[in-house]
C-alpha cells in the first residue's frame, strides 16, 4: 500500500473524529468568538460528558439517553464556571481553570474512581464506533447539522441577540437593559453542554471514556475555530461561520492523519496545533502593525492625520 492509499483509508476515521470534535468546537466558538470569554472549562467538561455517557451505557441505558445525560452534565459544568465568574467575581479565564481543576476528581468519581470506563461496541449498542467510521460520520454529521440549525435559530432570537450584544459590548448591553450576568451564564451553559455532548459521542467512538480525554481540548477547539475562520473568511452569514467551525475541525483531523503518516506521533500534534493557533492569532496583529506603520509614514508625509480615532473602525469589528 502506498502513502496515498493508506492516507485515503484513514479518511473516514479522520472525518468522523472531525465531526465529533466539531460539536465541541461549536461550543468553543460560542464562548471564544461570540461571548469573548476564553473558557478553559472545556478540558474538564469534555471528559465529564464522556464519563457520564460511558457510565450510563455500561449500566444499560440506551446510547441516545446517555448522550442527553452527557449534554446536561456538560451544561452543569458551564453553570459552575458561570457562578464562579458572575456571582463570585472571579476573572473569566481563572474561573474556567478552577472548574477544570475541580472536574478532574469529579470525573474520576463519575467513573467509579477508575481512570477509564470501557463502553465497547461489543458489550452495548452505541451510536458511534471506531469500527464503523462511515456510519459514525453519518450520525455525527446529523448532530452537527442539527446543532448548527439550532444555534442559527437561537442566536437570532431576542435572548440570543442579547448574548451576542454582551460579547460585543457589555456596557452597551447593560445600558439596553440586558442582564449581562444572565447572558454570560446562558452562553457558558450552552457551550459546555455541546462540549459534553461531543465528549459523550467521542467516548462511544473510542469505546471508552478516559480521564485524560479532554486534555488539550481547548487547543483543538481553538484550532478548529481559527482554521474555519480562515477557510470561510468570505462567508458573512452566521450559519456559514458555524459550518466553517465544523469544517475546521475536520481539516484539523485530516492534517493529523497526514502528519502521523509522515512519521510524527499524536503527542507531537499538540505542539503543531499550538503553533497553528499561535500563528493564525498573530496574523491579524501583524497585519494591523504593518498597516499602522504605513499610515504613520503616509501621514507624516503631508502632516495630516487621515484617520482620527473617532473615525476608525472598532477594533473588535
Amino acid at each position: 500500500m502506498n502513502f496515498f492509499t493508506a492516507l485515503l483509508a484513514q479518511m473516514p476515521d479522520a472525518v468522523a473524529k472531525g465531526l465529533i470534535w466539531g460539536l465541541m468546537a461549536l461550543g468553543v466558538y460560542i464562548t471564544y468568538k461570540i461571548l469573548d470569554f476564553p473558557d478553559l472549562t472545556v478540558d474538564g467538561s469534555l471528559c465529564t460528558g464522556g464519563a457520564v455517557a460511558a457510565v450510563m451505557i455500561v449500566n444499560g441505558i440506551p446510547a441516545p439517553v446517555a448522550l442527553v445525560g452527557a449534554l446536561i452534565a456538560g451544561g452543569i459544568t458551564g453553570a459552575v464556571t458561570g457562578i464562579l465568574h458572575t456571582k463570585m467575581g472571579i476573572p473569566g479565564i481563572l474561573a474556567g481553570i478552577l472548574s477544570q481543576l475541580a472536574l478532574y476528581p469529579i470525573n474520576l468519581r463519575i467513573m467509579g474512581n477508575r481512570s477509564n470506563v470501557s463502553a465497547s461496541v461489543d458489550a452495548s449498542p452505541v451510536m458511534a464506533s471506531i469500527r464503523y467510521p462511515e456510519q459514525t460520520c453519518l450520525i455525527a454529521l446529523l448532530f452537527c447539522v442539527g446543532i448548527v440549525l439550532i444555534l442559527c435559530w437561537f442566536f437570532g432570537t431576542e435572548l440570543g441577540s442579547a448574548v451576542r450584544a454582551t460579547g460585543s459590548n457589555p456596557n452597551m448591553a447593560r445600558a439596553q437593559g440586558i442582564n449581562t450576568n444572565r447572558t454570560k451564564m446562558v452562553a457558558l451553559v450552552l457551550s459546555n453542554a455541546l462540549v459534553g455532548l461531543s465528549g459523550g459521542l467521542f467516548a462511544q467512538y473510542q469505546s471508552a471514556s478516559d480521564v485524560h480525554m479532554g486534555r488539550g481540548a481547548i487547543g483543538i477547539g481553538l484550532a478548529a475555530v481559527i482554521i474555519g475562520q480562515v477557510l470561510f473568511s468570505r462567508v458573512r452569514a452566521f450559519g456559514g461561520q458555524l459550518t466553517g467551525v465544523v469544517v475546521g475541525a475536520i481539516v484539523y483531523y485530516i492534517v493529523i492523519a497526514l502528519v502521523i503518516r509522515m512519521g510524527l506521533n499524536t503527542n507531537d500534534m499538540k505542539l503543531i496545533s499550538a503553533l497553528v493557533v499561535a500563528i493564525f492569532l498573530a496574523i491579524p496583529y501583524w497585519k494591523n502593525n504593518l498597516a499602522q506603520k504605513n499610515r504613520r509614514r503616509n501621514s507624516s508625509a503631508d502632516g495630516t492625520d487621515k484617520d482620527p480615532a473617532w473615525n476608525r473602525r472598532s477594533n473588535h469589528a
Binding site: 442579547a162 460585543s168 459590548n169 452597551m172 439596553q176 473617532w310 472598532s314 469589528a317
Partner: peptide, 30 residues
Amino acid sequence: PMVGTAGDMTIEENLALAARRGEKRTLRWG
C-alpha cells in the same frame, strides 16, 4: 462612540436590542 452600540452587530440588530430595553429577552425572533 464605540460604547453606545455593538460594533459586531448590524444596524437593525442594534435598533431591535434598543426596542426591547427593559423587557424580558425571550426566544421570539430578535
